[in-house]
Amino acid sequence: MNVRICFAKYDRLRFLGHLDVMRYFQHAIARSGMPIAYSKGFHPHMIMSFAQPLALSMTSDGEYFDCELEAEEVNADELCANLQDAMCDGFYIRSVTVLPEREPNTRKQTGMSQIAGAMYLCEPLEGCEDALEGALREFAARASYCIEKKGKSGMRAVDVRAGVHAIGIAKDRVGDIEYLCDDGIFDVPATLVSGWGSEHSEHSLHREGAAEFLFAVDAGSENNISAELIAASLRQLVSCEIPERCFALHRMELYRSKDGRMLSLAEN
């Protein structure tokens, strides 16, 4: 059977690269006693597949990996608690979900291949708030905004604006979110405080009273609008001098597409 694990990555660990995160979870799974399945052959490895890598220095509430278990039945809550016990500060297990059995003769769908959307928070760093808010409003008002992106075969233009489905702004972390646009594909939150977020909010990097920009975007292999791409677009729209790194970036969630709507990867 397959399970999907959703975890958060905070604090110091935002400087841990993707490969090190994978290694960390291999060790954590061994410590937790999870009955994970191993591949066959002389060098067996744990059967696990990670969703989208997170850029260095970003925090996240929406990291995922799927793994195959050597078990007929499992208690997902117990797995979740045991795995949480094996975590070090900065990693939090948000949920463990048993994935539905695959229909016979269908292709295996891992978290990675299902990704269709993502939600990001971009927090302007001190001193850049006003300039970036202006840029945000201008960006929201446009129908399209193209930016050069380095792809596999050189630079190519990407329409960042077209890949953005909702833009919100919260003047501080606990306040209501004002939506500058929302095409209804994502279930967007009315405030930033979620049930989970409040529990661990003390671990968050975010500055007290800082403004937060929320973006719901296309993600995955077809049209991936990364948080950095959005940050770069807004920075281009600012006319005055601001530092190259003008945002603290945070991933809130990853989504898959179902019947024209975006569903959290944690939902079956």
């Binding site: 110091r12 660990l13 400087f15 090190d20 960390y24 954590a28 260095l56 070090c88 500060d89």
Partner: peptide, 12 residues
């Protein structure tokens, strides 16, 4: 490799 400087490892 910024992870050289952040500590926070398991069993720290």
């Amino acid at each position: 490799k910024p992870a050289r400087y952040i500590g926070g490892e398991i069993n720290m």
